[in-house]
Amino acid sequence: MKKISASLTFLTTEEGGRVAPARDGVRSQILIGDIMTSCVVRGQADGGVFIPGRQYIVELELLFSDLYAIELDSLKTVELYEGSKLVAKGARL
């Protein structure tokens, strides 16, 4: 399982983000090129909760990174989804 660092901001409800804030350890889908795959978000959340609109430095544990190694090397922009809904965005560090 590969881990990458990213600077992420979880979207507010007004921006189309989650109704309830995400928690440390949340599973989301990450967009790598035109491929969606699963990841676990780990970071220093406020009391275990990622407050929408705040920027966090997180570690993303990619569950199937061996399948997308080439695409992952060129990843610069990070977008996290829950289903088809964009819930967080940022940049790879």
Results as ranks from 00 to 15, higher is better:
residue 1 M to C: 12
residue 2 K to R: 15
residue 3 K to M: 11
residue 4 I to T: 01
residue 4 I to D: 06
residue 6 A to F: 08
residue 6 A to L: 07
residue 7 S to F: 11
residue 7 S to M: 12
residue 8 L to S: 05
residue 8 L to F: 11
residue 9 T to M: 15
residue 10 F to E: 00
residue 10 F to K: 00
residue 11 L to N: 06
residue 11 L to F: 08
residue 13 T to N: 13
residue 14 E to D: 09
residue 15 E to L: 05
residue 16 G to L: 08
residue 16 G to S: 07
residue 18 R to K: 10
residue 19 V to D: 11
residue 21 P to A: 08
residue 24 D to H: 05
residue 26 V to M: 15
residue 26 V to I: 14
residue 29 Q to E: 14
residue 30 I to R: 08
residue 30 I to T: 13
residue 30 I to E: 04
residue 33 G to P: 10
residue 34 D to E: 15
residue 34 D to L: 12
residue 34 D to Y: 14
residue 35 I to N: 14
residue 35 I to C: 14
residue 36 M to K: 14
residue 36 M to W: 14
residue 36 M to Q: 10
residue 37 T to D: 06
residue 38 S to M: 11
residue 38 S to Q: 15
residue 39 C to G: 00
residue 40 V to T: 09
residue 40 V to H: 09
residue 41 V to Y: 03
residue 41 V to G: 10
residue 42 R to T: 14
residue 43 G to I: 00
residue 43 G to A: 00
residue 43 G to T: 02
residue 44 Q to K: 11
residue 44 Q to I: 15
residue 45 A to E: 00
residue 45 A to I: 05
residue 47 G to S: 05
residue 48 G to C: 10
residue 48 G to F: 02
residue 48 G to H: 04
residue 51 I to N: 04
residue 52 P to D: 02
residue 52 P to E: 00
residue 52 P to I: 01
residue 54 R to H: 07
residue 55 Q to P: 08
residue 56 Y to M: 07
residue 57 I to H: 14
residue 58 V to C: 07
residue 58 V to E: 04
residue 59 E to Y: 09
residue 59 E to H: 13
residue 60 L to Y: 05
residue 62 L to H: 11
residue 62 L to A: 03
residue 63 L to T: 04
residue 64 F to Q: 15
residue 65 S to W: 05
residue 65 S to D: 08
residue 65 S to Q: 05
residue 67 L to D: 11
residue 68 Y to F: 12
residue 69 A to K: 08
residue 69 A to N: 13
residue 71 E to A: 14
residue 71 E to Y: 09
residue 72 L to T: 03
residue 73 D to R: 13
residue 73 D to H: 14
residue 75 L to C: 10
residue 77 T to L: 14
residue 77 T to R: 04
residue 78 V to S: 03
residue 78 V to T: 00
residue 78 V to R: 01
residue 78 V to K: 03
residue 78 V to D: 00
residue 79 E to N: 05
residue 79 E to I: 02
residue 79 E to V: 05
residue 79 E to D: 09
residue 80 L to D: 01
residue 80 L to A: 00
residue 81 Y to T: 07
residue 81 Y to S: 02
residue 81 Y to R: 02
residue 82 E to A: 05
residue 83 G to E: 07
residue 84 S to K: 10
residue 85 K to N: 11
residue 85 K to A: 04
residue 85 K to E: 02
residue 87 V to Y: 03
residue 88 A to V: 05
residue 89 K to P: 03
residue 90 G to M: 01
residue 90 G to R: 01
residue 90 G to S: 01
residue 90 G to F: 00
residue 91 A to L: 12
residue 91 A to Y: 06
residue 93 L to R: 06
residue 93 L to E: 12
residue 93 L to W: 03
